[in-house]
């Protein structure tokens, strides 16, 4: 049986993890490769690296990081953050990334999704959608959720699927950082409408929140960052409890 996926997300800047992490057993808490290895060994199903580097050296440092991660890690991983061209994607996939996640660049040039899917196959093209509610409507945001667009979340998700995206990473900016639970209603709306897998992100704070994003939210995967980094929830404990709640998990 296909299992639901638990996905820790690492924020990266110039090849280093940004947010503090609380792993006493890490020799170097800022080394994403070491952190990734620990997650991989302790039950994570997949990893996401979100790069927020904003320098001209960005591509090179990110490709270096992807190479080091791919050498060490034997679970799939996705790389995102400022990826905007076929060349960017080609360099990252050739370095060993399994998938790339595109956000603002797809909003700016939706045709990019078609080109990427045709060049590399849908399976490695993840479209990240940052959504925030404005006057009762779910609106797509770019630039880390700061800049509203004219796009409605559900229509945009449908469009990116039609253009060849292989997966959607939905972050509810209203829930992100709150630890008050995922955006289950919106997640379920999208997940039942789409035929491609959906990763839910934003708001996971307790084991029960994860339970609900898989049952009420019908998500295929759930992503979180700080609760894993600070060991508020151990991935293995989380997966065991979800399995007991009849949510299929790889244990």
């Amino acid at each position: 049986m296909l299992t639901k996926r638990i996905v820790p997300c690492l924020d990266i800047k110039e090849g280093r993890t940004v947010k503090g992490v609380n792993f006493v057993d890490l020799r170097d808490a800022g080394d994403p490769v070491e952190l990734a290895a620990i997650y991989s060994a302790t039950g994570a199903d997949e990893l996401v690296f979100l790069d927020i580097t904003a320098t001209v050296e960005k591509r090179k440092t990110l490709v270096d990081l992807v190479t080091r991660v791919a050498q060490k890690i034997n679970i799939p991983f996705t790389v995102g953050g400022g990826i905007s061209s076929i060349d960017d994607v080609s360099a990252l996939l050739n370095a060993g990334a399994d998938k790339v996640s595109i956000n603002s660049a797809a909003v700016k040039d939706p045709q990019l999704i078609n080109r990427l899917a045709a060049t590399f196959g849908s399976q490695c093209i993840v479209i990240a959608i940052d959504s925030r509610k404005i006057q009762g409507k779910h609106i797509v945001h770019t630039h880390g959720g700061r800049k509203p667009t004219h796009l409605e979340t559900i229509a945009w998700a449908q469009e990116v699927q039609d253009r060849g995206a292989g997966e959607i990473l939905l972050t509810s900016m209203d829930h992100d950082g709150t630890k008050a639970g995922f955006a289950n209603k919106l997640t379920a709306l999208l997940s039942t409408k789409l035929t491609i897998p959906l990763i839910a992100s934003g708001g996971g704070g307790t084991i029960d929140h994860f339970k609900r994003v898989f049952t009420d939210g019908k998500a295929d995967a759930a992503l979180a960052a700080s609760i894993f980094h600070f060991k508020e929830i151990e991935i293995l404990d989380l997966k065991k409890e979800l399995q007991e709640a009849a949510i299929p998990m790889r244990l």
């Binding site: 049986m1 296909l2 299992t3 199903d45 849908s122 399976q123 035929t195 790889r250």
Partner: peptide
């Protein structure tokens, strides 16, 4: 064409 709750591609961990 997948029945509801199945997605394509088949993506993830399966036994």
């Amino acid at each position: 064409t997948p029945p509801e709750s199945y997605k394509i591609p088949h993506m993830g961990w399966n036994s």
